[in-house]
Design a binder for these strands. Structure first.
Length: 608
RNA sequence: GGGGACGUAGUUCAGUUGGUUAGAACGCUGCCCUGUCACGGCAGAGGCCGCGGGUUCGAGUCCCGUCGUCCCCGCCA
């Protein structure tokens, strides 16, 4: 049967919008054949577009020509239906679909396109494996849940744009073809044809450009922008991803927080969720001590150092190092554990941190009733809760007993806390069913983590590395420690965290060239080296740079959490696989020797 | 770079201790059916058991290698 042309036929309604009061109207719908139910002289066709599904009836008696044509329809054919919207008889109403009170009695059917039998049907509830979904992404994206994620992403992005524009931010584009700054993530490189042997790099973030926009007097900048990092992938990491990037002049951290809380509030509202602002604030040190993580998941109780509940004799008996914290982890409502489950907890704790695990509260109560009473008072642990104590090991060499300087003590304390924090999350995951804290997908607990350390010791390179990035400003009060005690220098850096996921990271930047130089020096970078890498930027700093700062948030991650999805691939229309392959277009591909030659890149030798 | 899981019809899966003709459901094709909406009924087609090698009288099943997808560690200033 010949296909029909669209001609000047115009759609009157979408497939999701007709309701009972529309009955009697003459309508034109267009969309895909979702399902066809052929009862002989009566054929039902569900027409689908991104807004929903409407049932169309073809009756052989009423309209033989249209009915005959409808018999040839197959899944995913593209059709136009001209007919009358009719209220359904009470006993044929379908309460499962929005348009279930009406149906279209077809007068005319136009088949605009056919479809091969698709490898899977958008209407099917059982998903094929991801390889098939990604190869036929255009079919996968027709599935209502994927359409919903695409719409959600659109709404979130638009709400953020609206909000920021309303706050006086300009959306300004920055180059995708820029220069490689080999620090941090690996760059994606683009060879230059005009400059043989030279390469552009795709930006890992527009960091220096947005700072230069502040120097340029743009005052408030934002961009919803693609960033690129050539690193290994994860469920929450894609090689190209989208950031909500912003920068402002003359801010304190709190001013940045207000803006972020504002646009996140708008974004979540657009997604149908109210969130509470302002978010709680917590310093990095508090986060480590209370949650053993720099991205605390606040949906479960904090940890507590219960060292003081024990007497010196207790600690000795337990073979616990009294110089280190004894961290109590409480997971509510877990109930009694089997012997096997208790033993398993010990294996869940990495031995690298040299920590010790005690089992449940009752056992502790038996051996140390006084300590148990005090621990109950501090943590509020109930009999039905799981409590695990993590302590430092007293093995010689496990910690330097001679550690006396505060940073060193802090280092060893934090090792115990982060080990405990890891166990806390593992236990939370394992017993999620019982405590129920992760069940509500709309339970969004935001948090600002502030005062990150300026430097981290890089064991491989044997030098201090920037914890955030080298343009982050130290605390004004910590400037004099830059050389004497780098470990104690706090940065004006902050993360916004949601349910244990880092959504974004930012800082107040260095706006003075003299301080920037000091930082490079503290990082072990010579003046020459700094000049070679960032000369253009250091020079710009010298021409009247205002105090400035900003942040960047992962749009994909925000949408993923809002969608309740487990992978970024569910909210990115065309994502890449774990090996960074696009299965639909089959990228990357080899290129011809001619192309390589043109780019001044060494041509591959032919085999043999 | 390392560890783990998986790979059988278009799709989702089953396949016993290695045994003769590899199954089911959905989808697909044809026929029947005037109130279905996961329509129903009857009949049928459809397989490089990812790929390569090995063990064996015999391999979907055991072994080695390889490719692909997923998850994790490293990595991601």
């Amino acid at each position: 049967m010949a296909l029909d042309f669209l001609g000047d036929l115009r759609r009157t309604h979408t497939c999701g919008e007709l309701r009972a009061p529309d009955a009697g109207e003459r309508v034109v719908l267009m969309g895909w054949v979702n399902r066809r139910r052929d009862l002989g002289s009566l054929i039902f066709v569900d027409v689908r577009d991104r807004t929903g599904i409407t049932q169309v009836v073809f009756n052989a008696e009423r309209n033989p020509a249209a009915h005959e044509k409808a018999a040839t329809l197959r899944s995913e054919y593209v059709i136009a239906v001209i007919g009358k919207c009719k209220r359904r008889d009470a006993d044929t109403i379908n309460p499962n679909i929005e348009t279930g009170e009406i149906e279209i009695v077809a007068d005319e059917l136009k088949i605009l396109n056919e479809s091969k039998t698709p490898p899977f049907l958008p209407s099917e509830s059982v998903l094929p494996n991801e390889e098939v979904r990604l190869q036929y992404r255009y079919i996968d994206l027709r599935r209502p849940p994927m359409q919903a994620n695409i719409e959600l992403r659109h709404r979130v992005a638009m709400a953020i744009r609206d909000y920021l524009a309303g706050q006086g931010f300009f959306e300004i584009e920055t180059p995708f073809m820029t220069r490689s700054t080999p620090e941090g993530a690996r760059d994606y490189l683009v060879p230059s044809r005009v400059q043989p042997g030279k390469f552009y790099a795709l930006p890992q973030s527009p960091q220096l450009f947005k700072q230069i926009l502040m120097i340029a007097g743009c005052d408030k900048y934002f961009q919803i922008v693609r960033c690129f990092r050539d690193e290994d992938l994860r469920a929450d990491r894609q090689p190209e991803f989208t950031q909500i990037d912003l920068e402002m002049s003359f801010p304190q951290p709190e001013r940045v927080f207000e803006v972020v809380e504002g646009f996140l509030g708008a974004a979540f509202k657009a997604a149908g969720t109210e969130i509470k602002t302002p978010f709680p604030r917590m310093t990095y040190d508090q986060a480590i001590r209370l949650y053993g993580s720099d991205k605390p998941d606040m949906r479960l109780p904090a940890m507590a150092d219960v060292r003081s509940a024990f007497t010196a004799a207790d600690l000795e008996k337990l073979n616990i190092n009294a110089g280190l914290p004894v961290v109590a982890i409480v997971i509510p409502s877990v109930g009694e554990l089997s012997r096997h489950q208790r033993d398993e907890i010990k294996t869940m704790l990495g031995d690298k941190q040299r920590a010790k695990v005690f089992e449940d509260f009752k056992r502790l109560e038996k051996s140390f009733p006084d300590a148990a009473r005090k621990i109950r008072a501090t943590t509020g642990v109930r009999p039905e809760d799981l409590i695990v104590l993590v302590a430092g090991d007293s093995k010689p060499g496990a910690h330097p007993a001679e550690a006396t300087t505060p940073p060193e003590v802090r280092q060893h304390d934090f090792a115990v806390c982060t080990a405990a924090g890891g166990l806390r999350l593992a236990l939370a995951q394992k017993y999620a069913e019982k405590h129920g804290a992760f069940k509500d997908k709309k339970d969004f607990q935001f948090l600002w983590v502030t005062d990150f350390p300026m430097f981290e010791w890089d064991e491989q390179e044997k030098r201090w590395a920037a914890a955030h990035h080298p343009f982050t400003s130290p605390h004004e009060q910590d400037m004099e420690k830059l050389e004497s005690d780098p470990a104690a220098v706090r940065a004006l850096a902050y993360d916004v965290v949601l349910n244990g996921t880092e959504l974004g990271s930012g800082s107040i930047r260095i706006h003075r060239q003299d301080i920037q130089k000091k930082i490079f020096r503290a990082l072990g970078m010579s003046d020459d080296e700094a000049l070679a890498r960032f000369g253009f930027f250091l020079e710009a700093l010298e021409y009247g740079t205002p105090p400035h700062g900003g942040i960047a948030l992962g749009l994909d991650r925000i949408v993923m959490l809002l969608a309740g999805a487990d992978s970024l691939r569910e909210v990115i229309p065309f994502p890449k696989t774990a090996k960074a392959v696009d299965l639909m277009v089959d990228a990357p591909t080899p290129v011809s020797n001619a192309q390589l030659r043109e780019l001044g890149i060494e041509v591959k030798k032919k085999a043999e």
